[in-house]
Amino acid sequence: MPVNEEFKPTIVAFCCNWCSYAGADLSGTNRLQYPANVKIIRIPCSCRLNPMFILRAFQRGADGVILCGCHPGDCHYTTGNYYARRRMTLLFSMLDFLGIERERTRVEWVSAAEGAKFAATMNEFSATIHKLGPNRRLEDLRCRKD
């Protein structure tokens, strides 16, 4: 599919409450810009992310999904992000198998002090998704509202 000039990707960012959500807040406090098509959903810990939520997002027309959690060793619940990492690795291989570009999903560790990293990550991720173009493979047209 040719890259549409008007293409505004829909990107869902799951952020754990303790580090990454605070990191996102910090990039706001510091007025660091990133594209408006990134929308954040707050979850208590990265380990709350059920891979099903990612599939759901793709099914509903998301073009990219990113999970942000505390750095390894810093999870508020000690081990949550290790579980998250393992689960995401499994999901990646499944998405590979389905032929969904690997770059559409990503895991990043962003601490509460890394406002700049959060913004940079989102800019970069959004650019990547832009290059990949709209995601149609998993989208369920029956779910479209228009």
């Binding site: 208590p44 810990c45 709350r48 992310l49 059920n50 099903m52 759901r56 509903r60 998301a62 579980y83």
Partner: peptide, 29 residues
């Protein structure tokens, strides 16, 4: 309330109050 168990549960029986599967999926939608 970390939610690790909710994802580990193979039968989908475990859920987290305040951040339930349905709530998060409603936000996604």
């Amino acid at each position: 309330g970390c939610g690790a168990c909710t994802v580990a549960c193979p039968s989908g029986a475990m859920d987290l109050k305040g951040f339930s599967n349905k709530q998060i999926m409603a936000e996604v939608d």
